[in-house]
Nucleic acid binder design. Structure first.
Lengths: 230, 230
DNA sequence: CGACGCTTTGACACAACTCAACAACCGTGG
DNA sequence: CCACGGTTGTTGAGTTGTGTCAAAGCGTCG
C-alpha cells in the first residue's frame, strides 16, 4: 500500500534502494479508519504526521454557524498534517471520507529521514509545497471563478492528481464524493452543485454517476474551466 | 528595519544574542521597490527567499480572463517565498503595494541557519506555517462567508497582524489598500466592496478613510464576522 | 414494509454583479 | 490661472447567478 507514495516520489526523480527502504521504514504503525472518522481533531496536539496509504480524506474547517469548508481532499500517497506537526497543533481537522488506511509517522523520525536522506526529505517537502499550491489554486477558484468553471476545474485537478497515483482508467475514475461534500468543497450549495453537474452532463463534458466520473470531452472541459497544466 | 521581524519572533519565545545576530546576518542584500513593482515573477527560478522589512506586498495570481485573486498581503516582518524557494519556482507572483524594503536571503544560507540555530529555524518555519493557516482562513472566508462578514473578518485579521508588529495605534491603523485591491482580495467587485464599507460605516463598526482604518466597535465587528481569536 | 441517504426538480428570493454616471481629488501642462 | 486626464470613491437601476424552500423520486438497508 506504500506503493502509491513511492510512485509519487518517483515522479520527481529516481529513488535508490536505500532511500526506498528508508521510506518503507517510515510506515510503522498502520491504522485503519471508517468513513467520517476524525483522524486529526481540531486543536489536537501533534508530534506526528500521517501518510495516507489508501482511501480518500477531507481536510475541513467548521464554522460557528454550522457551515463548513473543505480545504482539500488528501488522496493516497499524500502526506497529511506535516505543517500541523510543525505548529504542534492543527486549527482544522482531517477526517476519513471512505474506508482509509494510514500510517503514523513520528515527527522526530521524519526529521531523521530529512538528515540521512536529504533527497527523500526534499521530495516530501516538495509534496507539501505542492499541497499548498493546490490550496492557493482552490482559493483562486472560489474567489474568481463562476460555479460552473469552478466545478469543471475541480474535477480536472482531481483527475490530474489521481492520474499521478494511477487511480484513473482511461477517462474515468472512481469518486466517492456526494453532492453535499462537493458543495462544501466548492463553496456552493448541494442543490446548485446538482445544477452544475446537470449542465456538465447536458453539455457532454463530464458525467458523475454511481460514484464514477467520466470525462467525455477533455479539451472542452479545460476550455470551460480555464484550466492550464503545469 | 529588521526590528519588525525580530519583534515577531520574540512573540514566540525569547531570542538569545547569538540568535539575534544570526538573524541580523541574514539581512544581506537590502533592496527597495516602488509600488506595483514585481518582486518575484510567476514562473521565476528561485534559490532565495525574501524578508519584507518595510511596506506592504501582495501575493497574487492572475487569470487568463484578466481577473486576479490576491492570496495574501505580506506585512513587515513576513518571510516571503520560502515555499517557492523549496519548489524552486513560483506559480504566482509577489509585488509591492507601497514603497517597500526587502532583504534577499539565499536558500542555502537559510538552511545553514536552520542547522546552526534550530530555534530560529523553528521560528521561521512556524511563521511559514502560520502563513499557510492564513491562506486557509482566507479560503474559508471566501467560500462560506457573506460579503459583509468577509470584509469585516478581513480587517480584523489585518488588525491582529499589524498589532503583532506594532503598526497599530489604539484602534487605528494605516491601510494603503484601495477598493479595487480589496475587491481582488475578497473575491468581490470594487463596487460591492464600496457598498460593504458603507454598511460598516453606517453601522458604526469600522471606517476606512484616507488610507486609514478606524475600528469603532471591536466586539460588534467580531460578532458580525464570526471572528475568533487564536 | 418504512426509514434513510442521496439526487433531482421547480418556484421564488435575494445577494452580488453589470452598466452607467457623477463627484472629488490629484498632478500636469498649456 | 484654469483646463485636463487619470485615479479613486460613490450612487442608482436593472440583471443574473446562486441560495432558499419545498417536494418528490429512487435506491438501499434494516
Amino acid at each position: 500500500m506504500i506503493e502509491a507514495h513511492l510512485k509519487k516520489l518517483r515522479i520527481r526523480d529516481d529513488v535508490s534502494p536505500e532511500e526506498e527502504s528508508a521510506i518503507r521504514a517510515l510506515v510503522s504503525e498502520v491504522r485503519e479508519y471508517r468513513p467520517d472518522k476524525v483522524v486529526i481533531r481540531r486543536g489536537q496536539e501533534l508530534n506526528e504526521s500521517i501518510l495516507l496509504l489508501d482511501g480518500w480524506m477531507a481536510r475541513t474547517k467548521d464554522l460557528s454557524d454550522g457551515g463548513r469548508q473543505i480545504i482539500a481532499f488528501p488522496l493516497p500517497g499524500d502526506c497529511v498534517g506535516l505543517r500541523s506537526a510543525l505548529l504542534l497543533t492543527s486549527d482544522h481537522c482531517f477526517s476519513a471520507l471512505t474506508d482509509i488506511v494510514v500510517s503514523r509517522v513520528e515527527a522526530s523520525r521524519m526529521m531523521r529521514i530529512f538528515n540521512e536522506f536529504p533527497r527523500v526529505g526534499a521530495a516530501i517537502l516538495w509534496a507539501v509545497s505542492r499541497d499548498e499550491a493546490m490550496v492557493v489554486e482552490h482559493l483562486v477558484s472560489i474567489g474568481r471563478r463562476s460555479a460552473i468553471e469552478r466545478t469543471a476545474h475541480f474535477f480536472l485537478e482531481l483527475w490530474e492528481r489521481l492520474r499521478l497515483v494511477k487511480l484513473t482508467t482511461d477517462n474515468e475514475f472512481a469518486c466517492p464524493l456526494n453532492q453535499y461534500v462537493l458543495a462544501d468543497a466548492l463553496g456552493l450549495t448541494a442543490i446548485h452543485v446538482n445544477r452544475m453537474l446537470r449542465q456538465l452532463r447536458e453539455r457532454k463534458l463530464l458525467t458523475l454517476k454511481e460514484r464514477k466520473v467520466i470525462i467525455q470531452n477533455l479539451p472542452g472541459l479545460k476550455a470551460l474551466a480555464g484550466y492550464h497544466d503545469r
